[in-house]
């Protein structure tokens, strides 16, 4: 007997898969037929600088999310304190705020300090992407059994020693996965950056710039470069994360 139900599920389920894959394939294959424009874009100093800007700011955002997000994730995983639910909600809040609104709020709060500078780009990225690191770290720490930490204590490790030799390494995979999500979310951020820091130009803003000024065919090579670079770095980071754990 044929399993019609599974076939039905496969047919329906493949819609989203194809829907996501189609534009990516299409733009990449069109670009392969037009390698000249990509080489031209690579020679464009503005394009190169914007790509460097995107990568450095996203990476800085990821590092900041680790420095501040891991301790917060640990507290949320292990401690019970007054207002814990409130703290958790605040961490998750940026997911539901439109990114243009994020930009307005940041500008309203920090004004000149973040206007059109690297700090502005990073602050916009951090706001919208930090929750990935915090939540993954929290889940990673929750998965580390407290009994294992107890054993390490009885073997002579202080609380901080246990954290660095047992808890952190065991949660590392989850933490790094979250950090990669933060990086990916940061490099794909546009809305808040447009408002806070139009300059220094990031690649994601430049794509929009070129599209507005010169049209689709000029914007496409940069878009493709951005896609390729994001994919490559994403894959490298994933590989690093899986080797580390």
């Amino acid at each position: 007997m044929r399993d019609y139900f599974s076939i039905f599920l496969a047919l329906v389920g493949s819609f989203l898969f194809l829907y996501i894959l189609l534009p990516i394939t299409l733009i990449l294959s069109f670009q392969i037929l037009d390698l000249g424009s990509i080489i031209k874009a690579l020679k464009d100093e503005r394009v190169l600088n914007s790509l460097i800007n995107s990568v450095t700011t996203a990476t800085a955002t990821m590092l900041l999310s680790l420095i501040f997000g891991v301790p917060l994730g640990y507290l949320l995983a292990r401690k019970n304190f007054f207002g814990k639910n409130f703290v958790q909600s605040v961490v998750d809040l940026p997911i539901v705020i439109p990114h243009s609104v994020v930009g307005i709020m940041l500008l309203f709060t920090y004004s000149e300090a973040i206007l059109d500078n690297y700090l502005g780009i990073i602050s916009a990225m951090l706001f919208v992407s930090a929750s990935f690191t915090v939540n993954s770290a929290r889940e990673g720490f929750i998965a580390v059994e407290e009994k294992v930490e107890f054993v390490a204590r009885t073997l002579g490790a202080t609380k901080s020693k246990v954290f660095f030799t047992i808890t952190l390494p065991l949660a590392m995979h989850s933490i790094l996965t979250g950090a990669i999500m933060t990086w990916a979310r940061a490099i794909s951020e546009v809305g808040a950056i447009l408002i806070v820091a139009y300059y220094p130009k990031t690649a994601q803003v430049l794509v929009m710039d070129y599209f507005n000024n010169y049209g689709l065919s000029t914007a496409r090579p940069i878009a493709v470069l951005l896609i390729l670079m994001s994919f490559t770095l994403f894959l490298i980071l994933r590989r690093v994360a899986s080797v580390k754990s």
Partner: peptide, 29 residues
């Protein structure tokens, strides 16, 4: 604190350090 008692503890599920080899587990203390 537990680290200064000189009392070793083996919980029911053994509490091994899963990110380490057997050697590293035994050498930990």
């Amino acid at each position: 604190p537990p680290e200064r008692r000189g009392i070793a503890y083996i919980p029911q599920n053994y509490g091994l350090f899963m990110h380490m080899t057997a050697y590293e587990n035994i050498a930990f203390g």
